[in-house]
Simulated assay, not measured.
Amino acid sequence: MENSLSNMMCLDIYLLSLDSKESNKIKKQVKALDVESKPLLSWNISHTNSFVMSRKELDIQKIKAFAEKYKWKNDIQKILSNNPFEALVLTDSLEKIIWVNKGFTEMTGYSKTFATNKYPSFLQGEMTSKESKKEIRTNLQKEKPFELSVINYKKDKTPYTCQVQIFPLYSNKITHYIALETQIQ
Rank of each mutant, 00 (worst) to 15 (best):
I174W: 00
T116N: 07
A115S: 11
E131W: 02
I136K: 00
I174C: 00
A67L: 03
L148K: 09
K28W: 04
Y160N: 02
F114E: 13
E126V: 08
I76Q: 03
Q165V: 06
T113G: 12
I26M: 03
W99P: 05
I76A: 03
E131L: 02
V52K: 15
S50A: 14
K78V: 01
Q77T: 09
M9R: 15
W99E: 11
L169D: 01
N74D: 02
D59A: 13
V164Y: 03
L90D: 03
M1G: 15
D12S: 12
P39M: 03
E36W: 06
A179F: 01
G103D: 06
K64P: 00
L5E: 14
K133P: 01
E22W: 05
L94H: 10
K31H: 14
F122T: 01
K134Y: 05
P159H: 09
I26A: 00
Y160Q: 01
D156Y: 06
D156E: 12
H176R: 06
M107E: 06
M53L: 14
I98C: 13
K133T: 07
I60E: 10
D75L: 00
N152M: 03
L123A: 01
S81Y: 09
E131A: 04
S50T: 13
I45N: 13
F122C: 00
M8T: 13
N3Q: 14
K118N: 07
P159N: 08
K25I: 08
K144G: 05
I60V: 10
F51T: 11
L94I: 06
K73L: 02
E36N: 15
K144Y: 07
N3H: 14
G125S: 01
L15Y: 04
N74F: 00
K64L: 04
N3M: 10
N24W: 10
N24S: 15
